[in-house]
């Protein structure tokens, strides 16, 4: 079997994603449309929360991808540090704005949900606060990428920042928990799901989560392709200058 590292070759990556990307995109659209319609129109209203509960189909999957987006960046950064595959660094760069947007969606849908439930748009609840801090980490990471001209230098520096940032994001999570026990309901996504949320809400949520995962994948693949092409353009320009 071919080694997985073959896909670290940009040309191989572009060729493979040429084939894969349309399917992933189609699957993402299918899951999202299906899951959201199922969730919004074909589930009963919660007896306490009314129809507001339905925002869960956006809120939970986006929150999931906000965290997994960062984890993906961390993995890609580690691969860059250890094996120095350019595609890996570019994938980390590509994932950051998507992850940041997911974080923002989670924060905004959370606020919209929180307003009728808790009577406030924002509370300094540990989970909300952690997501806000995560958003700041995303911003810093993207700003560092944008500030440095040399691609390899930028990849090196952002990788180390991602590593250190991950540790401190985790620390912040626990610090925030320590600082304020919150209003937020317990985990929606848990092994013993029966305790948290009924099946009838659970299945469409699963579909929506699959949809968000696929959407994230599609966007990251698309953006990585763009980054690879931009990088190729810079390499060609550099070669031009050499004459």
């Amino acid at each position: 079997m071919a080694s997985i590292w073959e896909y670290a070759n940009p040309r191989k990556f572009i060729r493979t994603t040429d084939v894969v990307l349309p399917w992933v995109t189609a699957a993402a659209v299918l899951c999202l449309v299906g899951g959201l319609i199922w969730g919004f129109f074909f589930t009963p209203e919660d007896y306490r929360q009314g129809s507001t509960v339905k925002i869960i189909y956006l809120h939970v999957p986006s929150a999931l991808m906000a965290i997994n987006g960062w984890l993906m960046m961390l993995a890609a950064s580690l691969i860059w540090i250890v094996r120095r595959h350019h595609v890996s660094a570019l994938a980390a760069r590509a994932a950051a704005p998507v992850g940041a947007t997911m974080t923002l969606i989670a924060l905004i849908t959370g606020a919209i949900w929180g307003q009728p439930m808790w009577g406030t748009w924002w509370a300094w609840d540990p989970r909300l606060t952690s997501f806000l801090i995560l958003f700041l980490f995303y911003l810093g990471y993207m700003a560092l990428w944008a500030a440095i001209e040399n691609d390899d230098t930028a990849a090196d520096l952002t990788s180390v920042l991602c590593l250190v940032g991950s540790v401190f994001a985790l620390l912040s999570r626990y610090a925030v928990n320590f600082w304020n026990q919150g209003l937020h309901q317990g985990a929606t996504l848990s092994m013993d799901k029966q305790e948290n949320i009924a099946d009838i809400f659970w299945y469409p949520l699963l579909v929506c989560m699959a949809g968000f995962i696929l959407l994230f994948l599609a966007l990251v693949l698309l953006r990585t392709r763009t980054e690879i092409r931009a990088r190729r353009m810079r390499a060609l320009l550099a070669r031009e200058r050499l004459g």
Binding site: N9, R11, H86, I228, R231, R232, A235, L236, A238, G243
Partner: peptide, 15 residues
């Protein structure tokens, strides 16, 4: 000089 294709690993994969 500008490297020939496959000559070295300077952004080779990107060219």
């Amino acid at each position: 000089r500008a490297p020939l294709r496959g000559e070295d690993d300077f952004d080779e994969a990107f060219l």
